[in-house]
């Protein structure tokens, strides 16, 4: 029995970048130990994301109300949980996470069986590195994560991550809806799951825009700090 792997792609107005990403994913030669399905979660896009997605994949989860990235991701994890997938990988719809890096996550998981494997931009500095301001914020989050959990995660905002069955179960039940990535690390660490990080190369987004816009960056840091603190003290 191969391991069942679900790629979850949360999308908001990604009709332009989605076809290339899905085509690239489908042409991927995975190790024989894995079988892959692709789920596109459409977070109430205003463009033709659903129609585009339906042409390329069978699993399209179409949210009737915009929930934000966390709510969309959780829908994917709920699907993975209900349909008995062994692994789920989040991959952004804008093409930032190159499919050819997927095998690195899978290899690392096969070798270590860590529950959460995060693909990081920063361990080895290659590929797209994002702006200086944003890197400062990410450095702060690294410090905060280390402070709360003792785990070193350099790229805690990275959405390119692999979950095993245990992590999927937790995320299906409780996943933050706004800016979920740093906070969820604390949730997993508190549940006693092994969280590991490996270097991957990322690309600059191929289309669409970041879910974190200029003015929202300060809000992002404040909100994530508060959310991480409360996730930490919550029983």
């Amino acid at each position: 029995m191969p391991f069942k792997l679900l790629i979850v792609i949360p999308c908001y107005n990604e009709q332009d970048s989605l076809p290339a990403l899905l085509a690239e994913l489908k042409s991927l030669a995975l190790p024989p130990a894995f079988s892959m399905d692709i789920a596109v979660v459409n977070d109430c896009s205003k463009d033709a994301t659903v129609e585009v997605a339906k042409k390329h994949t069978d699993i399209v989860l179409d949210l009737p109300v915009n929930l934000g990235i966390g709510g969309a991701m959780q829908t994917g994890y709920l699907y993975a949980f209900q349909h008995g997938y062994d692994l789920a990988v989040q991959m952004d719809g804008d093409g930032q996470h190159p499919p050819y890096e997927l095998h690195k996550l899978l290899q690392h998981w096969e070798a270590t069986k860590a529950s959460v494997v995060i693909g990081s931009r920063f361990i080895v500095k290659q590929g797209f590195q994002s702006s200086a301001l944003r890197r400062t914020g990410i450095g702060y989050l690294h410090w905060l994560n280390k402070f709360f959990t003792g785990i070193h995660v350099y790229d805690s905002t990275s959405g390119f991550r692999l979950f095993d069955r245990k992590a999927i179960a937790i995320a299906a039940g409780n996943y933050p809806d706004e800016y979920p990535e740093p906070e969820s690390i604390i949730i997993f660490a508190k549940a006693g799951l092994a969280v590991e990080e490996i270097p991957v190369a990322m690309r600059e987004r191929q289309g669409g825009q970041s879910s974190i816009k200029q003015f929202a960056q300060l809000y992002y840091i404040v909100k994530v700090t508060i959310a991480m603190f409360f996730s930490f003290i919550r029983k």
Binding site: D62, T75, L78
Partner: peptide, 24 residues
């Protein structure tokens, strides 16, 4: 309320997908 709406929305998306698959 927000939490309830999130759950409802997710449930709806999952059901919609299931229905479409059954129709196929």
């Amino acid at each position: 309320l927000q939490k309830s709406i999130t759950s409802l929305t997710q449930e709806m998306a999952l059901l919609k997908q299931q229905k479409e698959k059954e129709a196929q």
